[in-house]
Amino acid sequence: MLSSGLTLIFGMMGVLNFAHASFFMLGAYFAYQISKYIGFIPALFIAPLIIAFCGAMVEKYALRRVHKFGHVAELLFTFGLFYIIEELVQMIWGKVPVGYHVPEYMDFTLFSMSGMGYQAYAMFTLVVSVAMFIVLFSVLTKTRAGLIIQAALTHPEIVSSLGHNVPRVFMLVFGLGCALAGLAGVLAGNTLGTEPSMALSLGPIVFVVIVVGGLGSLKGALVASILIGIVQTSAISLDYSINNFIEFIGFNVDIESLWRILIDLTISQIAPILPYLLLVLMLIFRPRGLFGNRDV
């Protein structure tokens, strides 16, 4: 979900938003604040709207100005924004995690399958994400508005001469992308933990998803995010190492050296670097990503 928002912005506008994970974090914090006073369900709608507004304002007053200096300047600006948002969040909500929890009425086991319990909230998140994705995909490819957006991004001059306000389209697309990040924040903030460092821990993974999925491809982002999700969660539960494998085949290796540590590393231990390893392999063997239509 988060990456689909980023892909939307990047693929559509060519703007790589470094602060995307920051909007995700803001989503979680706003949801915390709103659900404290009103409730979780309103927060699900209000928080992304606020984020969309913030995003649109950022685009209108800052990014548009930077745009003439090129894409790298835009990236640099969002990098600065990333720091600003992190510090602002620390200023308002403090450095320690806030108590943003799963709403009680969804905090039960919905059903169990092969011994594993599935929480109702996890299912809810899944349903919302999939619904969001289908809506987004169909709006962008099937409706007239979606066509205008696509056209505005590839041929801005022609679209503006046809009477459409191209800067406004850009602003809305950016706002929409941020809203998606915010929505993801609302949904994931309570299970991942809402704290100021969450943007930094999540941001780079999103970039990996984008590159692996293929730059600017919405479908690629979906597949890659599922793939990386599966790789990471399954890797954590796999407690095997190369040594186990060698013993399994029937050898018994007895090396007393640095390599010993290498072969004793279990897959769960190297789980954090797997996405990045995937990124490097992808760059070497298939630089355009899974569904991309251009090279990195």
Partner: peptide, 29 residues
Amino acid sequence: YVSTRRAGTAFAMISLGFCEMVTAMTLIF
């Protein structure tokens, strides 16, 4: 060798990926 195929934003993203990979490695090895 791997990352300089393109400049601009793609290069920036890749460099970030490498940075995170090495940071994660420091905690593993």
